[in-house]
Computed example of a mutant assay.
Amino acid sequence: MSRPIMAIINQTALQKNLSIVRNIASRSRLWAVIKANAYGHGIERVWKSLSYADGFALLNIHEALLLREKGFQKPILLLEGFFHPNDLTILHRYHLTTIVHSQWQIEALKKAHLSSPLDVYLKINCGMNRLGFQTKDVRAVWHQLQKSKNVGMVTLMAHFSKAESVQDVTESMTKLAQASKGLNCNISLANSAATLWHPRTHFQWVRPGIILYGVSPGGCLKNISSSGFLPVMTLSSKIIAIQRLVAGSQVGYSHNYRANRTQKIGIIACGYADGYPHHAPTGTPVMVAGSMTHTIGAISMDMMAVDLTTCPQARIGSLVELWGNNVRINDVASMSGTIGYELMCALSSRVPVTIE
C-alpha cells in the first residue's frame, strides 16, 4: 500500500466556479489564468474543465505549446511576454498573444520576420512597479505598436496591487483613463478580486485566477461564501499512529507543545515536504473522521500531530482533511502567516493526485 496522503481535484467544482465568474462578468470575455501549473492543480488535469473560458493566460511558452498539442485552439496569453527575440517565431507559429512591457520587446517585434501580425497586450504600470510602461509614455508606445506591421490588435492591460481597496482601484483607473484618452482599444484590468468586487473594472476582458479554484483572493472565506464558489483541491491523509500522553508530555521537534492533561493524539502522514506549511502553529484546523480538531506541536517533514480529544471515534486509518470543503485553505494559510495561493502552489510532486 502507498502512503495514504492524497490530493483530489474536483472538476465539477472547477466548472461551477467558472460559470459563477461568467455570470458576474457577463459582458466581458474571460481569460482563465492557469499560471503556476494552474495554481498547483496541474494544467493537464484542469484545462478541459476550464476550456469554456475565452482563452487561457499563463507564463510558460512550453505550457502554451502543451495546450495547443492537446487541441486547444482559443487564444492563449503569455502574462510575462516573450523573453528573447527568437521566441517570436514560436509565438507566431502557435498563434499566441503576448504582453509587451518593455521597449526592447517593441524593437524585437519591429525587426521580426513574421508572415502575419501578433496580437499584443500593452502592459501599463499604474503604481505596482513590476512590469509595464509608465502612464506618461503609453500614448507614444501605443503609436509605435500601431505602426508595426508585425502587430495586430493592441489591448491595454494593467494590474491592481490592492484590488480590495476602492481607493487604490479608483486611483489606478484614473491613471489609466488619462493615459489612454483618445485611444480606441480593448482593456483588461480585472484580476479575481476586481472581477468580484469592482464591476466597473471589467471592460472587455477579465482575468480571474485564484477564484476559479474556489479560494478567496482576499484571504477571507466570507468574501466569497455567499457567491457559491467551491474549493477545487482537497488535501487528505490518514492517521498512521496514536499516542496517549500524560500531563507534561512533549510533542514533536523542539518540544514546543506540552500536554497539561491526559491526552490522546493522532499522527498524520503529512508534513512540509508534502506542501503543508511548516509554520502552521498549534491550533491550525484539521478534520479527523468527520470531526473538527487542530494540530499540536511543530509540523515535521513527513508528519504532524493532531489533538483527538474531540474525535473519540478516530482510529488508525481514519480519514483526515487538511484542507478542502470543511477545512478551508484560507484558514490554514491565515493561521500559518501565508496565503492560500502559496499553499496550493506548494503542493509537492510526491503527493498523488486524483481527479473526480
Rank of each mutant, 00 (worst) to 15 (best):
N330P: 00
K264A: 09
S148C: 11
T293N: 02
L118D: 03
A273E: 08
G55R: 07
H92E: 15
K48Q: 15
R244W: 11
V306T: 09
L58E: 09
T234P: 05
L114Y: 11
A289F: 04
A333G: 07
L347P: 03
E107A: 08
P75K: 05
K110P: 00
F72K: 01
T174M: 06
T295P: 07
L212D: 00
G55F: 09
I268R: 06
I76S: 06
K238A: 15
G324S: 03
H95I: 03
F133P: 08
K123S: 11
I316V: 15
I34Q: 01
Q204P: 03
L156M: 05
L235Q: 04
I34T: 06
I106R: 04
K110L: 02
T284W: 12
R68H: 08
G297R: 10
S249N: 15
V151E: 04
H62R: 14
K222E: 14
V353N: 04
R22V: 02
A346K: 12
G317D: 02
A108Q: 10
A259W: 05
D274I: 00
P117F: 03
W205M: 06
M233E: 07
V246T: 14
G275V: 04
H278F: 11
H101T: 01
E321T: 02
R258L: 07
E69D: 12
A314L: 06
V246N: 13
P85V: 04
L30F: 01
G127V: 04
A7D: 04
N129W: 11
D119T: 11
D302Y: 13
I24F: 09
N129M: 07
K162C: 08
N10R: 14
K162E: 13
T135F: 05
A177I: 00
H92V: 00
S2P: 14
A269M: 07
N223R: 04
P117H: 03
I239G: 12
K35V: 05
T295K: 12
L65R: 05
N330D: 15
Y257A: 08
K110G: 00
D168W: 02
S216C: 01
G248L: 09
L79Q: 10
M335P: 00
R200D: 14
A179R: 06
W205C: 01
V206R: 01
N186P: 08
N86F: 07
G275A: 06
L50K: 06
H95V: 06
I329N: 11
A163N: 01
R315C: 09
S180V: 10
I211Y: 00
P352Y: 04
S237R: 02
G228N: 10
G55N: 08
